[in-house]
Design a protein around this nucleic acid. Sequence first.
DNA 1: CGTCTCTCCTAGACTTTCTACCTATGCTTA
DNA 2: TAAGCATAGGTAGAAAGTCTAGGAGAGACG
Lengths: 111, 111
Amino acid sequence: MPIERSDLLQGTLDMLILKIAALGPVHGYGISQRIRQISKEVLQVQQGSLYPALHRLEKRGWLEADWGSSSNGRQAKFYRLSSKGRKQLDKEQSNWERLSEAVALIMQTAH
Amino acid sequence: MPIERSDLLQGTLDMLILKIAALGPVHGYGISQRIRQISKEVLQVQQGSLYPALHRLEKRGWLEADWGSSSNGRQAKFYRLSSKGRKQLDKEQSNWERLSEAVALIMQTAH
DNA sequence: CGTCTCTCCTAGACTTTCTACCTATGCTTA
DNA sequence: TAAGCATAGGTAGAAAGTCTAGGAGAGACG
């Protein structure tokens, strides 16, 4: 059986998380929901991808986190963008634009 | 020192190679040159990525290859798209459009 | 002769993501 | 009251792709 793959474009998850966090403090589970909603169900972040990514970003100093309670009164870890994270987001966004435009150039070359 | 990364968007290399091969038979070295030229030097395919990718695509039956001689009279392996490869290219292209539009949706959400 | 470009290739490391699990709590509903 | 579901956190290990860093040979050109 051929393998059907890819809920995400590899390499964009960090950027997407930083972008969602830039909209205001949000917990991990909420990030995955927002990505799914805003992308109209196209992008689905697996929890096994999400949490390692959050820890990675926090470790690099791009996100900062505090425990608090969610709208349901549950314990949740809220993430916000640090100023280093803001710079990183800008960098990743411009890199994304550069690369996706380059891919588009190739995909548009006439047959 | 922070690590600067990414000559390519992960996961797009196969699609780019199939696309270049769809323009007519071409050898590996030529593929990397065309990708670089068409993308205006933005996308640089390392040889250590290129050749494994070509072998992968040939193994999956998406490319077919014959040895021939290049315009310089040197031995070179020319790749062309098979009909399976054509279908795969169509599939990868529509998936790319779906995903890159979804990423764009998220990146465009107002602050 | 040395060096450059063209052309092919591989091994091993690294990163990211996925699958598949585990845990806990609160709400709903049968 | 029990079961199940959604919410919330997490990990381990596999799979996949790309990069770094090398090797090799042939022809062109000073």
